[in-house]
Design a protein around this nucleic acid. Structure first.
Length: 306
RNA sequence: GCGCCGGUCGGAUAGCGGCUAUUCCAGGAGACUGUAAAUCUCCGGCCUUCGGGCAUCGUUGGUUCGAGUCCAACCCGGCGCA
């Protein structure tokens, strides 16, 4: 079975740097070279660079990266697009005789590859979503209970987004299919998790935020909203992108001060990191290492790919 | 020193004398199959056999069947006047 390496961890844990280092160390071992596939739901967008902490050409240091800048931020990217594109990239990498390294913090995206998730073939129906979003969560849940009691029994009854999605599937194919991930996995995967103490992680988050501002994150957001040519991102869309872009949008609209933006972002990014950890903790296959334990990581990877 | 205002969870805040002391934030735990940096849920004084039990609104007294709420004194903070 084809080998696949995954580097994951919460935001600001040092994944990207590690992935490059690892790629270089592993080059030439049972693979001519390694190529990195990003698994980040925001770095897929063009122009979201500083705010997402997208790796620069220089930092890539010659290691090929994929799944960055593959979508216009005006459009909504989603997991099926990710899965399709990423799988394609993996195939290409393998056909070159190279080793794919998935690196990122979007657990759901990683899972779509690693667990070979299959999604119901129902594309988003914008009109229906708009219509349904006018109803209250209670009403939506009642509808779902009537149409698909099985899905209703397990769904998060207060989560509007999920309720609407479930109803969307029902409208198209009658029922929400049970998840069927029993089919065999496509890859022989080693998942490496970077674990960081809460104190260290908070420190990293705060430092990184300040330095992002220094290197022009605010200007980046301004430019996204108001580019030199053409129409920019609406504030609404920018807020939807979350974290940095959301609070940057608030700040640029003068809804909050710069100080409020910074303090708020520090806690919001921390909350995000915790949510990521909640997700990752469930997967017992992940091997956890501290970022300092590079040699152990390299050793384990070498053994895994040989 | 006098006058006024205020003291309720880590912070902020609600609370006509009556039922289970409210909400927000921070903090903690968790969910997640086409928005996932999104979205959503739970916990939150102590004890618990998970049914509940015992507390608690600066302190001490008092009024009252009943006090976070009324009264008095004291303590603390803010403002004003000296």
């Amino acid at each position: 079975m084809q080998k696949l390496l995954v580097i994951l961890g919460p935001t600001a844990s040092g994944k990207s740097t590690l992935a490059v280092e690892l790629a270089k160390k592993l080059n030439g071992l049972h693979a001519q070279a390694c190529e990195v596939i990003s698994a980040d739901s925001r770095q897929v967008y063009k122009g979201l660079d500083i705010g997402t902490g997208k790796i620069t050409q220089k930092e890539m240091d010659g290691v090929v990266h994929h799944m960055l800048d593959v979508e216009n931020p005006k459009n909504r990217f989603d997991i099926t697009k990710y899965q399709k594109l990423a799988k394609q990239k993996i195939e290409e990498i393998l056909s070159r005789g190279h080793l794919p390294i998935i690196c990122g913090g979007t657990g759901f995206y990683i899972s779509s590859i690693v667990n070979n998730l299959s999604f119901p073939p129902v594309p988003p129906n914008k009109k229906l979503r708009e219509k349904l979003s006018k109803y209250s969560t209670e009403t939506l849940f009642e509808k779902l209970e009537k149409l698909d009691p099985v899905r209703a029994s397990s769904i998060d009854s207060k989560n509007k987004i999920r309720l609407i999605r479930a109803l969307e599937i029902i409208q198209s194919i009658g029922k929400v299919p049970q998840n069927s991930n029993t089919e065999c996995l496509s890859f022989d995967t080693l998942q490496i998790g970077i674990e960081t103490s809460p104190e260290k992680l908070k420190e990293n988050i705060n430092k990184r935020l300040i330095s992002r501002i220094k290197v022009g994150m605010i200007e980046e957001a301004e430019k996204l909203h108001n580019p030199p040519t053409g129409k920019g991102l609406s504030w609404k869309r920018m807020e939807e992108l979350g974290l940095e872009y959301r609070y940057l949008a608030y700040y640029l609209q003068k809804k909050i001060t710069k100080e409020e933006m910074i303090t708020k972002l520090q806690t919001e990014i921390w909350h995000y990191a915790k949510r990521q950890m909640t997700w990752f903790k469930k997967d017992k296959r992940i091997k956890w290492f501290k970022i300092e334990e590079k040699d152990d990581i390299i050793l384990l990877c070498k053994r895994a790919i040989s």
